[in-house]
């Protein structure tokens, strides 16, 4: 319990630091968003002082001293009000993010979890059957596929299974004819559209988990408590899972936590290649459109979710490893 409270305390402290940094960093950059917008307008002719004022008012360029701005900002963060997007003007940033978030969470989130679970299990199997084909196939295959760049695998799949084979859709999260909602037809359609991006990410990230788990597991298998369990005639499956894997998985959890935290950021390249309307796609558009409010909101969200994922991993550690509870 003490451990959990301690972790939660640290979490709140880092959260505050992250939010504050997110506030300070843009203010330390030279120029203002209004300047950028005005520069765009200036291409079409001279800009008057009134236009400048109007643009500033429209964009909500902050006024007041730094402390006042900071308090306003905190208020905005708490009420999830991040202003209006420039690139998708006049859509509010929060609405855009909320629209994209489910797609990313489901696609990238599920794939990350699946990759971790499948990769870890294959890694356990590979280490347990060390030296057999069950070791060689996943270890060599996984690392071979893992060396492929994301986008290249994506392009290959898109080309062969999409354009040539016509087996899967090549663009978007659902067909133009389906209406988003909680209907079976929509879910089916969405899954169909998610198949190629999901396969891409699964194939490229699986290898890392397999090899990480296999190596940790081989080290653990050499430890005395595993030998002792075998000496006591405990069945192989129990030794592999309850003794070796249970201990070997601990270091991998940290990696899993980081991967989970990154889920919210989406997968920029994959979403871009497949035209998948998730956070990564949104972020790409925000960057190319110099959409500061949108960028800031997404960055903040990524930071917070990395922190939350780390907190979750800490709590999991506390449950799985009694030594950390001291």
């Amino acid at each position: 319990m003490r451990y959990m409270l301690q972790r939660a305390g640290w979490f709140l402290l880092t959260l505050w630091a992250a939010i504050t940094l997110n506030f300070l960093l843009p203010r330390m950059m030279p120029g203002s968003p209004a300047d950028a917008a005005l520069a765009k307008l200036a291409q079409n002719g001279p800009v008057t002082e009134q236009t400048r004022k109007a643009v500033e008012a429209q964009l909500g360029v902050p006024d007041g001293n730094l402390l006042q701005q900071y308090l306003d900002y905190l208020h905005q963060v708490v009420t999830l009000d991040f202003g209006v997007s420039y690139a998708f003007y006049p859509e509010p940033v929060t609405g855009l993010v909320l629209q994209a978030l489910p797609y990313t969470l489901i696609l990238v989130g599920l794939v990350t979890i699946a990759a971790f679970v499948i990769g870890t299990l294959l890694g356990v199997l590979a280490a347990w059957k060390r030296g057999t084909w069950m070791d060689a196939l996943p270890a060599v295959g996984g690392s071979f596929l893992g060396t492929f760049p994301y986008f290249w695998t994506a392009l290959l799949l898109l080309f062969f299974l999409g354009y040539v084979g016509h087996l899967f859709p090549t663009f978007g999260a659902y067909s133009a004819t389906t209406v988003p909602g909680f209907s079976w037809a929509f879910i089916e359609d969405a899954l169909y559209h998610a198949a190629l991006p999901a396969t891409t990410m699964l194939v490229t990230s699986l290898g890392g988990w397999i090899i990480g788990m296999r190596n940790a597991m081989i080290t653990t298998l050499g430890e005395d408590h595993v030998t002792f369990a075998e000496a006591n005639g405990i069945p192989g499956r129990t030794v592999a899972l309850k003794y070796a894997a249970r201990n070997a998985i601990l270091p991998n959890l940290t990696g899993f936590g980081m991967a989970l935290g990154g889920v919210v950021g989406g997968s920029v390249l994959v979403e871009q290649v497949f035209g998948y309307p998730g956070i990564g796609f949104l972020l790409f558009n925000a960057v190319t459109g110099q959409d500061y409010p949108l960028m800031q909101a997404i960055f903040l969200m990524i930071t917070v979710s990395v922190l939350v994922a780390n907190l979750l991993v800490d709590i999991m550690y506390g449950i799985l490893d009694p030594r950390t509870r001291r």
């Binding site: 005395d224 408590h225 002792f228 003794y243 249970r246 490893d321 009694p322």
Partner: peptide
């Protein structure tokens, strides 16, 4: 009975 050490028992059980 293996040599005494930290490791003859699984640390998480």
């Amino acid at each position: 009975v293996l040599q005494a050490g930290m490791n003859t028992l699984s640390p998480v059980r």
